[in-house]
């Protein structure tokens, strides 16, 4: 069964009761929340995702609820709990849905011990993975959202999963987080993209999420071979530039973007090493999304 088959009323019932068991790629998350905006967000953005039955094994247990204090009534707030432990400061209640997304990101970054997890976006074409590691503000999610609507299959916009034994690349294909001006940019460049209503005044500014394309969700269990590692940088007014980068310094930048490198130690070192060996590494500067799309098409076609 998929979220779209469940309907809003049953979805709300599951969330408010024993929890919704949501499958995203290799993970199952048990999500509990009585908050209506969380149910609406999941219904709109996760409509193509599978629901597991509520006796399944789950990887993450997430709960969003009001704090047990006066702040449930006065300027209401929301807490994110992982395994019944609050892991973030409370936020204003209208930020409940983005908080779910941030919380799920936190779970993957902190609770996955059997894969190398990179803070990066990733897409697939012809069986090969394009990995885009970058700090916030580099234009990674904007590029990722646009590529996901221009011939590339979305793997993830946030958490790349690398199998420690095979080095196959995958991702949970969850909604893509867009901030501030990138919301307008994606609305204009990808008219078929479904975006949530932007939430203003979050710590990251205005935030909206893009529904992942249906095909990407249905194929979220398919892995990809390492193909390209591209370090993107958005610079207003800059000419487009794709510059090869030496594998060694690419490796160092890659591990700087790994969430669990220190925890995995030697296994992560060799996994990231193989990834850098098997991929072509580049630095990429851009200012115009249409030019960037063409550049990535040329890269995929070997031109």
């Amino acid at each position: 069964m998929r979220i779209a088959d469940l309907g809003l009323a049953r979805l709300q019932q599951s969330l408010a009761g024993r929890g919704l068991y949501l499958r995203t790629g290799p993970f199952t998350s048990r999500i509990q929340s009585p908050i209506a905006s969380v149910a609406r967000g999941i219904e709109s953005l996760y409509r193509d995702f599978e629901v597991a039955d509520n006796s399944s094994f789950y990887d993450f247990h997430c709960e969003l609820r009001a704090p047990r204090s006066h702040r449930r009534f006065y300027r209401p707030q929301v807490l994110f709990l992982s395994d019944r432990r609050s892991v973030f400061k409370p936020l204003a209640c209208q930020q409940a849905y983005p908080m779910l997304e941030w919380g799920l990101n936190w779970c993957i970054a902190n609770q996955v011990p059997y894969r190398l997890v990179l803070h990066a976006a990733a897409l697939e074409r012809n069986g090969k993975a394009l990995i885009l590691p970058a700090p916030p503000g580099a234009g990674k999610s904007t590029l990722c959202a646009a590529l996901a609507h221009h011939g590339w299959r979305l793997l993830t916009d946030e958490s790349v999963l690398v199998d420690l034994a095979t080095n196959e690349v995958s991702g949970p294909a969850r909604p893509v987080s867009l901030k501030n001006d990138s919301i307008r940019v994606i609305r204009e460049s990808c008219p078929s993209a479904v975006l949530s209503t932007p939430i203003a005044d979050t710590l990251k500014g205005a935030v909206a999420h893009m529904r992942p394309p249906t095909d990407a969700v249905h194929r979220s269990h398919e892995t990809a071979r390492p193909g390209w590692i591209v370090f993107p940088r958005y610079r207003p007014g800059a000419s487009i530039q794709l510059k090869p980068r030496a594998a060694g310094s690419g490796f160092m930048q890659l591990i700087a973007n790994a969430f669990n490198y220190a925890a995995l130690g030697t296994r992560a070192f060799h996994s990231a090493g193989r990834l850098a060996e098997e991929s072509a590494c580049f630095d990429f500067t851009y200012s115009r999304l249409d030019e960037a799309m063409q550049q990535f098409d040329r890269l995929a076609d070997g031109r």
Partner: peptide, 10 residues
């Protein structure tokens, strides 16, 4: 643990 990556070594 040592790996050679192209002309570089980590």
């Amino acid at each position: 643990q040592q790996r050679t990556l192209g002309q570089e070594c980590v």
